[in-house]
Design a protein around this nucleic acid. Structure first.
Lengths: 342, 342
DNA sequence: CCATCATGTCAAAGCGCTTTGGAATGGCGC
DNA sequence: GCGCCATTCCAAAGCGCTTTGACATGATGG
């Protein structure tokens, strides 16, 4: 069923049918009702491609997922982010497109997306320092919003980020206040902007407490469970093992916990763990009571908010850019406790 | 840059440019080379919507993610599945579209997708028994493949599934062979076909060993970490607690492990765990040596294979349907051991 | 009673591409 | 020199929609 058929069926011109369905005021309410009923009855929806051709918009948002250098990792937060964004898109009649790409083809992919007119805008994921995507997208004129931020650019752009520096600073201060002086940092990949900020927060808290910064206690990597396990294991086997860990993801934290278990160490008593928690739906930090002491911020909510920001940008491209900084919630769970070895 | 501009620029007709780029033989190689070079130089890619309008294909695959009844859960395997599928799509020049939908609007969403011509085909995720989507899609003529299977339909359709029944039967047999007679099943939602098959495998292994089936030892639910923890905790607090668990997801298994830890029980020694492992990239079952004894099958590989199946179906709609059954690998890790309480 | 105007409707152009049905061009044999 | 193919190219139609500009219609005011 297409417009022509439907209009023939109703004995009305295509113009009127189109206007009736798109809510234009030039159509009488009686006609509109007839048209809408007929459309529903015959399961008519305007052809997306034809509509897009005519309007010049695709009503589709792109998400380019760059496969990490380290191989074939899928960011665990991805599903929840998309769920949040998807809600917003659905509410505004936008489709959501995903493209997976190797890091070397990143620029081409964005160029292509825009040349083909496949999307009206994109969400930039996992920004790096001085991320090349921001000038690129600005240059080719593809609207975008950034999940996170990119230090080292003087471009004006829209972003939404969690105050990672503050979160890790506060968490480290908390551990210091419990008497810990040897704290391991199990960070995300420090090619990514957020991870750098987290380390800064950690370093600054330790520095202000007069503690020394030991490079051996700071690791950076893909935030898998195995990475958490391996990193924590290595640190715990050092001559002066840390009595606490600051961890970048709850998935890593599970690995850290496994490392403790393997050594008969009790978390909270022998070794403390504070983790960042993205509030993943399938890996909630406990139900009513938290499992880990954590800095938490819902990645799903971030997805929803960023989608809204992007749609707004597309609708009013000349509006000023919006920068949003969310503070993480700090919740205290049983995974932390006072330093006890003295 | 569009076709018209590019052809003017080259002093050639649009037809020839289009044919040159699409590899038609009517164009001399010299002309083709010129055209390709110019297209590259000016970053020309045919407009997706116009191309789609003209050809009648969208070169886009839809993934409809039904939000579970239980609320707002995102299936953790989703990211890895999409990563696998995305690889295949990219290789064939297909885009990948995602739609998130509440269970009640499912049928409308598929109908709409096809009426709008938004996608050339869809992947059906998380099939239920007698899943209504299969007759619906067949009726409206939207090509599809199923990740899993749906019992209770006499339709002929293409699917790829893991032999869940066999995997759980084998796993249960293995536990029985270790001397376990009281085995808890922490299953996925039994509205879903795969979970039913898993239970069947479990039941059949216990039955053939002459063990009784205790409904209190079988639970079904969304496979979160918390669910694994809560379910295992409840069973361990029973008067006759199980000495082993069969778990439907590695994420649940982490929750089960947490329940053991909380009770001072040693996994493998006091209580055994066997889990299904979808080989999630960020939650691998250990690096060289497994963490859990597990039945494993890569959901990412499934995504890649299903994407290929769907593309093939779209290209040759009259080809016979393909049914693929993968066997899970059984790996033995430290999470299982002989029954010791006697 | 005519000019004016709001209202509801329509025909046709155009969005950027593919593809059909010709039409030039040049090489070849006779 | 002529007819005949291959080769190479093109003009124009069509995909299904939106939107412009124009046109009936009936109501209104002078």
């Amino acid at each position: 069923m297409n417009l022509k058929e439907l209009s023939h069926l109703l004995g009305i011109s295509q113009t009127t049918v189109s206007r009736a369905l798109n809510g234009y005021p030039e159509v009488s309410e009686a006609t509109r009702a007839r048209v809408v009923a007929a459309a529903q009855a015959h399961n008519y929806s305007p052809n997306t491609r034809a509509q897009g051709l005519a309007t010049g918009h695709s009503r589709c948002i792109g998400h380019v997922i760059s496969v990490n250098d380290s191989g074939e990792m899928v960011n665990p937060i991805f599903g929840d982010f998309m769920a949040g964004a998807g809600e917003t898109y659905a509410a505004h009649g936008y489709d959501m497109m995903m493209t997976r790409v190797g890091a070397q083809d990143e620029a081409d992919t964005y160029r292509n997306l825009q040349a083909r007119g496949a999307v009206d805008g994109v969400v930039v994921h996992a920004p790096r320092t001085s991320d090349a995507r921001l000038p690129l997208l600005t240059e080719i004129g593809l609207p975008f919003v950034v999940h996170g931020r990119s230090t080292g650019t003087d471009l004006d752009y829209s972003w939404l980020d969690v105050n990672n520096r503050r979160a890790f600073q506060d968490a480290a201060r908390y551990l210091v206040s419990l008497g810990h002086s040897c704290i391991g940092l199990i960070n995300g990949q420090e090619t990514l902007d957020f991870a750098i900020r987290r380390r800064e927060g950690y370093v600054s808290a330790l520095t202000e407490a007069g503690l020394s910064i030991d490079p051996a206690l700071m690791v950076s990597g893909e935030m898998t469970e195995e990475y958490g396990f391996a990193s924590a294991s290595a640190m715990l086997d050092m001559p002066d093992p840390p009595s606490a860990f600051l961890v970048s993801s709850i998935i890593c934290a599970v690995g850290v916990r496994r490392a403790l278990d393997g050594r008969g160490l009790k978390q909270g008593a022998d070794v403390s763990i504070v983790t960042f928690d993205d509030c993943l739906s399938y890996f909630a930090n406990g139900a009513e009571t938290p499992v880990f002491t954590a800095m938490q911020s819902s990645v799903r909510a971030a997805g929803a908010a960023l989608a809204q920001m992007l749609i707004d940008r597309i609708n009013t491209p000349d509006a000023p850019h919006i920068q949003t900084l969310w503070e993480a919630d700090f919740v205290i769970g049983p995974s932390t406790g006072p330093y006890t070895k003295d």
